[in-house]
């Protein structure tokens, strides 16, 4: 059973690296455990450190298909689990024009044909390996959490008209959260927890160079150095890996071969998105505004 996902932590590291996702040991181990124990994996951390990307990388590395449920405020059962296509049902009733008896019609309109499956149900019903990504789970309401609870603990869904659908093959579930709201203890208890943080300088350099081919090693080192220093400052939004990568792409586009102070000051807008953060950075890093 374990062979569906990863053999061991080292295997997870190697295979994720193979698809361009560089992990640290704890991440690889937790990803391996999530597969081995068949438990959902709750990933938390600041924006842009690769939480969503982890799920995608697992899907790529294991050849599984990714089913994604993007959470937002007001998401309900009808859009997360399943829904009856009532317009089609209405049409069906109108088309029959009362020729059929009620019981026939009733049996007829609650069949697969009129069922609209939404991400949670389709992830459970698939019999090929599936990675289910529940993105930004902290954005949902508490009711959806209750729904997730049912799905994630037993991997089954009960549809009154059709019966209970049980997963033939448990999907690899990744939940991501920006911690804008505390999730309930019940959800947390059922999940493995992983906190993704900013990487150390070494790994960040590796990530930037692998994501942005053609970046000079010297520039990459300079860039990572500046980003690390920025993170030490007291900023409203510290730059994350996504921003470092964007910055590297910017430098390539501008054909800059050396990241000196003036360049840093000019392109700071790519990494820092608050005006006050930029001023603070210019002051603290003593940049000459060119």
């Amino acid at each position: 059973m374990t062979s569906t996902w990863f053999e061991s932590a080292a295997d997870a590291t190697a295979r994720l690296r193979g698809v361009g996702y560089l992990t640290d040991e704890a991440t690889a181990l937790t990803a391996f455990l999530a597969g081995a124990l068949e438990k959902p994996l709750l990933v938390e951390g600041p924006a842009g450190v690769g939480k969503t990307e982890l799920a995608k990388a697992v899907a790529r590395a294991t050849g599984a298909e990714l089913v994604r449920l993007q959470c937002y405020e007001g998401l309900d059962e009808a859009r997360a689990l399943y829904e009856w296509n009532y317009k089609k049902q209405l049409l069906r009733i109108q088309a029959s024009r009362g020729d059929d008896s009620w019981s026939e019609t009733h049996d007829d309109i609650f069949t697969e044909e009129f069922l609209l499956t939404r991400p949670l149900l389709s992830a459970i019903r698939r019999d090929t390996p599936t990675v289910l990504l529940v993105d930004e789970v902290d954005k949902t309401d508490v009711e959806v959490e209750g729904l997730l609870l049912e799905v994630l603990s037993d991997f089954q869904v009960t549809i009154p008209e059709l019966g209970t659908v049980t997963a033939t093959r448990r999907p690899f579930v990744v939940l991501t959260s920006n911690a804008s709201r505390e999730l309930s203890e019940a959800v947390k208890r059922r999940c493995l927890f992983l906190h993704l943080d900013y990487p150390d300088a070494e790994r960040e350099r590796a990530i930037v160079t692998s994501q942005v081919p053609g970046l000079d090693d010297k520039v990459a080192a300079q860039l990572v150095d500046v980003v690390v220093r920025l993170r030490e400052l007291e900023l409203k939004k510290a730059p994350s890996i996504a921003e470092s990568v964007d910055w590297a792409r910017t430098l390539i586009a501008l054909e800059i071969g050396d990241l000196d102070e003036a360049t840093v000051a000019r392109t700071l807008g790519v990494v820092l998105k608050h005006a006050s953060d930029q001023q603070r950075a210019i002051k603290e890093l003593k940049l000459a505004v060119g």
Binding site: A26, L29, L33, E44, A179, L192, F193, H195
Partner: peptide, 18 residues
């Protein structure tokens, strides 16, 4: 460190508690 990470993944559900 493997043992630590395995414990952390299953027991610590809130980063400040780390």
């Amino acid at each position: 460190e493997t043992v630590r990470a395995a414990y952390a993944a299953t027991l610590v559900k809130r980063q400040p508690q780390r």
